Simulated assay, not measured.
Amino acid sequence: MTKKQAARNRPKFVVIGGGTGLPVILKSLKKQNADITAIVTVADDGGSSGVIRNYVNVVPPGDIRNVIVALSELPKINLDIFQYRFKSDDSFLAGHAIGNLIIAALSEMKSGIFSAVQELSEMMKVDGHIYPASNEPLVLHAEFTDGTQLAGESEITAAHKTIKRVWVEPTSWNAGQKPHAVQEAIDAILDADEIVLGPGSLFTSILPNLMISNIGDAVLKTKAEVVYICNIMTQKGETDHFTDSDHVAVLNRHLGQNFVDTVLVNTAKVPDNYMDYNRYDEYSTQVRSNFKGLRAQNCRVVSDNFLCLRDHGAFHDGDRVAQELFNVAGNPKACD
């Protein structure tokens, strides 16, 4: 078999999301030789990304930077330099990652984040495709069950209210424009074998992508299997007390129909007193399972021990998750 034939035979995964969970899955899919496209949220307003966004008219680069590193084939030393974050006593550059500054510079040079990421992907020897969910920075909006509304990811999560719905709008300097994804991202969704959502913050990492109308429409139209990797822990200010079924119900409600085909659910218990809730202060409790609720939404459930315990935190075991994603790709729900 030639290299071109091998490439054609690789299953096509489109992974949609943001945050720290996304690179873990991408690294493991890459190790198993998947054909990967990552569609990454552009609605982050915190940390170094938020500061850069406030001073420079560019999409916040943090999630994109981490995805580039996850799919890069450069030596570790190159990636360590790209990821290096200046110390807090470096007042001018305090807290900024070098990669964020490079992405911001390229965005200005290339007149947009999409072209910048494609250029940088070549420079960083990325195995796969990385598409920002939008070529323009977006602001996340939320309506809570008490009727109030807030704008901005950090403001929404800090409110610690029950979220009813979220949506995205352009920033003030792009007001009036309808958010949309580049055609390359839409084509990838429609041509995929499997769409992977998560793991990541439900309201602030996954849904901001799906609320871009042409992405949401493409996910509904695609013939690919749509797989949701349910979070292991609930998140304060977002999914307090949620079961796995509640997560899926929110996704389905936002797109107006039951579109999630398969859900990956962790069955291993996080040991009592293991979590360091001071260090991982965004987490609340372990997500409980409601298989009956998942079945009622026409979901196939793949349950297993996907838990990775390290540094007194609970994470997904990327290799185990990737293996199940490959299993699902070889046995789509429609063929059960």
Rank of each mutant, 00 (worst) to 15 (best):
V265Y: 04
L255C: 10
V301D: 06
P332V: 08
A296Y: 05
L251Y: 06
N278A: 12
D272V: 15
D281K: 12
A314P: 15
G330Q: 10
H241E: 09
C299Q: 03
Q286H: 12
S284E: 14
A314K: 15
N266P: 00
F306A: 08
R279L: 12
A329Y: 10
N305D: 15
R320G: 03
G330N: 13
V302Q: 06
R295M: 06
S284V: 14
V301Q: 05
R279N: 13
Y277L: 14
D244K: 05
Y280C: 03
L251K: 06
H254P: 06
H316E: 12
N290A: 02
L264C: 03
Y280P: 04
L255M: 08
A296S: 13
Q235R: 03
Y277A: 11
H241Q: 15
L325N: 09
Q235G: 00
R310S: 04
D317T: 10
C308W: 04
T267H: 00
S303Y: 05
A268S: 09
C308Y: 06
G256I: 05
R279M: 13
T234C: 09
D240E: 12
F315D: 09
H254F: 12
R295C: 02
S245V: 02
V302C: 09
N273A: 09
G293H: 00
Y277K: 12
D311C: 07
N231V: 14
N278R: 13
S289E: 00
Y228E: 05
A296D: 07
V250P: 09
C308L: 14
A314I: 15
A268E: 03
K269T: 07
Q323A: 11
V248H: 01
R253V: 05
P332M: 05
G256T: 10
K223Q: 11
F259L: 00
K236S: 07
I232V: 07
M275E: 14
H254E: 10
K269D: 04
P271C: 05
H241D: 11
T285W: 03
R279C: 14
T285Q: 07
P271D: 06
A322Q: 08
V287Q: 05
L307P: 03
G318Y: 08
V301M: 02
Y280S: 05
V270G: 05
H316P: 11
C308Q: 13
A224W: 04
V226P: 10
D276R: 10
E225G: 10
T267D: 01
N305L: 14
H254Q: 07
G318P: 07
D261P: 02
S245Q: 06
V302L: 08
N273L: 09
G237C: 13
R253Y: 14
T222N: 00
D244I: 01
L264E: 01
T267I: 07
N273M: 10
D317I: 06
F315M: 08
